[in-house]
Design a protein around this nucleic acid. Structure first.
Lengths: 330, 330
DNA sequence: CTGTTAGCGCGTTCAC
DNA sequence: GTGAACGCGCTAACAG
């Protein structure tokens, strides 16, 4: 910048002002400076600017694992929305490891991110302490953290679980199993609660052996369905509480010689892109991932901009997507 | 930091040195400073440090789309390896849009990234110009850019396509179709070249109508297989040149009433995580994604560290993974 | 073993 | 309409 100023025969402050349009500059000087900038291929340093401004135009995005299609699609929505408003995203995979998560938070603070989007891997007191000390706006997604008064956004998982189960009930199923996620995740428990509510509302008895806990992976869904198929009285329908485990279930069912949806109905949850191309195409409950990404980002930016609003708590609507893995029960 | 120095009764340079272990400090002073740092919850500013050092410990990662499982898994490997050596990753989705890619590059330069990993969306002269002006180390992945003498790493796609096709041939297939990716991608053309080589080597005639161009998506694979099934003489096996399109093919075949692998063999490419749980489980050619991530990162870091080595050009080995979507031809 | 000083590249106040 | 000067927080000489 100094060199640009020199070559243009002006002061650095003038150069700064033409770059940022922050005060009136005579047209000829302006053109001259712009020309020199172009010629020298000068590109201002965001790090120097950040040191001055105390704002980095960078946000941290912490997820358990960006390979999980649900997170991948969420990240995409966020990255998209952030770029549109001039922010970059630092990607952090915590792998459900509190140590790694803490280490990452430390680095993010050093880097002086302007805000953090956190899908928490663990929600212990240690994390709560760290987050309170963080001093930057935070948006919590899917997983709340006790003692951290931050904005919180998730889909309405209870309603989603209810929609899935009611769909099966309306198809005439009465023996409906549920493959859940990890018990310590609220988003998982909520889906199960929705499942239970639908059963109760329909006057169906809940059988403990029809609720099998899994871990939101393909492998987990595969094994969970195998267990269900070994039961004396097999279910005629299964609510797999995310698409990955639903896909694993499809695989296990097929290997057991069952035809879907004729012999067994399967419904998933999330509506990842691939759910449209499973065999058969997966009926599922869609989370509004793109909208969520937009919303999360906008809430965070708003908070960064200094709105001293009360903390938000938003529930987004889910939606039933009927495809071919569910059918009426004989 | 100034405040820490004050409260500890030392100079800021001493504080700096205890933080960085960069010169000897008497044990008592050291302990005192550390205590104050703890007490004040002081965390050094990486942005000030970067301004001084001219290194941000940040790398840019530009991909077409992080939701594509292949890229997602690659990103994961890279992010992992980078974190281990003290680097963060800024995620950039270019969506095959040269404009967006260019805009992103601009921001990354402003942010003064230390290096760039680029899976190029377009490889025009404009991009080459930008990259040459970038002045930071670059590792190109999968897609080369003419006129940019950067390190280049990819899997051996020609060999991969050959492996896939030869597998089908060894199973007794003679009518083998290929669903390719976009014609402008070298990684796509290479796979097709491997396919052709295997055919030739086995003395099988290449039929133009057995090569259908697609776009590496589930939808694309679905439609491509539909076209193949309308042919007067149907193929008995298909090499889908990535897993997404293989999965789409599985879906189309199933809807057409074909049984896989009895009526049609399908082999994919990439070995994404979900390939283990399709119905039936997908036979595919695995790219060593984790290794690639490690390797890419290490090459970049080495280059950042100032190795003035000749530009590298590395081909990583692929591997056939036989599962259940391929079978011997009657 | 420790402190003083200068400067990294910007934005901003104040003076002209 | 423009420039000089200061400081953001840190590290790297240089001095003692």
């Amino acid at each position: 910048m100094k060199q640009v100023a020199e070559r243009a025969g002006v002061s650095t402050s003038t150069v700064s002002h033409v770059i940022n349009n922050t005060r009136v500059v005579s047209e000829d000087v302006r053109q001259r400076v712009l020309a020199i900038i172009e010629e020298m291929r000068y590109i201002p340093s965001a790090v120097a600017r950040s040191l001055k401004n105390d704002r980095t135009q960078t946000i941290g995005m912490m997820v358990p694992n960006n390979s999980n299609p649900y997170f991948a699609e969420l990240i995409q929505g966020i990255e998209d929305a952030a770029f549109k408003v001039g922010y970059n995203v630092i990607l952090c995979n915590a792998y459900e490891d509190p140590k790694k998560q803490a280490a990452y938070l430390r680095v993010l603070i050093e880097k002086r991110i302007d805000g953090l989007i956190l899908v928490a891997s663990s929600a212990d007191q240690e994390l709560a302490r760290l987050l309170r000390a963080l001093a930057v706006p935070i948006v919590l997604v899917d997983r709340e953290v006790d003692g951290v008064p931050a904005d919180f956004i998730k889909a309405d998982h209870e309603e989603g679980g209810y929609l899935a189960t009611r769909h099966l009930i309306e198809l005439g199923h009465r023996d409906i199993a549920c493959i859940s996620g990890p018990a310590d995740l609220l988003s998982s428990r909520d889906r199960v609660r929705g499942y239970l509510r639908a059963l109760r509302e329909a006057g169906l008895r809940f059988r403990l052996d029809y609720l099998v806990r899994s871990n939101f992976t393909g492998e987990g869904g595969y094994r969970a369905l195998q267990r269900l198929l070994r039961l004396p009285k097999r279910p005629s329908a299964v609510f797999a509480s995310n698409d990955l485990s639903a896909i694993g279930s499809l695989c296990a069912a097929s290997e057991a010689g069952l035809r879907i949806p004729d012999d067994l109905s399967v419904i998933g949850y999330d509506d990842i892109a691939l759910a449209s191309y499973t065999t058969p195409r997966l009926t599922t409950v869609a989370q509004p991932k793109y909208e969520m990404g937009q919303r999360i980002t906008n809430v965070l930016i708003e908070r960064i901009m200094g709105g001293h609003l009360p903390t938000r708590r938003e529930l987004l609507q889910t939606r039933l997507v009927v495809r071919q893995s569910t059918a009426t029960h004989a």
